[in-house]
């Protein structure tokens, strides 16, 4: 099941040129792109691992593309996303976030129902990938 998080996730995967253009847009707006990766695709898994530091004060997307490449090489079976942070007054938040790499196999989520006392139903969503230990989930 394809994970749909962040912008453009319902579209086909962005090509390198498209990723570069999006990043250039972020830089032109004065946002600082940061690279993050994870292998736990759960929608509530908000804070992914940071790859190096956010890239402040860049003018050209080439530097970011270089870091993305390094991150992909280090984590070929992980999700990798770009967060563009706007430090402007009143915003101070992520303005654009999109996935730039996803694992080849995305096994999706299990929904389990537990019947508790009084026939109350509680639901639990869990990624199948989590059955395996960290680092081996999408290999």
């Amino acid at each position: 099941m394809r994970v749909t998080q962040g912008a453009f996730s319902f579209l086909p995967d962005l090509t390198e040129t498209q990723v570069r253009a999006q990043i250039q847009y972020c830089l032109d707006q004065g946002w600082a792109p940061g690279i993050e990766y994870t292998d736990d695709p759960h929608p509530r898994n908000t804070y992914w691992e940071m790859w190096a530091q956010p890239l402040f004060d860049l003018k050209d997307a080439a530097g970011v593309m270089q870091e993305i490449k390094a991150c992909r090489e280090a984590w070929p079976d992980h999700y990798v996303r770009i967060n563009a942070f706007d430090a402007g007054h009143g915003w101070e938040t992520v303005r654009l976030s999109f996935i730039v790499q996803r694992p080849a196999r995305e096994p999706g989520f299990k929904l389990s129902r537990t019947v508790a006392q009084g026939r109350v139903l509680s639901y639990r969503t869990e990624a199948y990938a989590l059955d395996r230990p960290e680092g081996e989930r999408h290999g």
């Binding site: 050209d60 080439a62 530097g63 970011v64 270089q66 870091e67």
Partner: peptide
Amino acid sequence: VIKKAMGG
């Protein structure tokens, strides 16, 4: 520094 200078 190199990343900052890229494109320039």
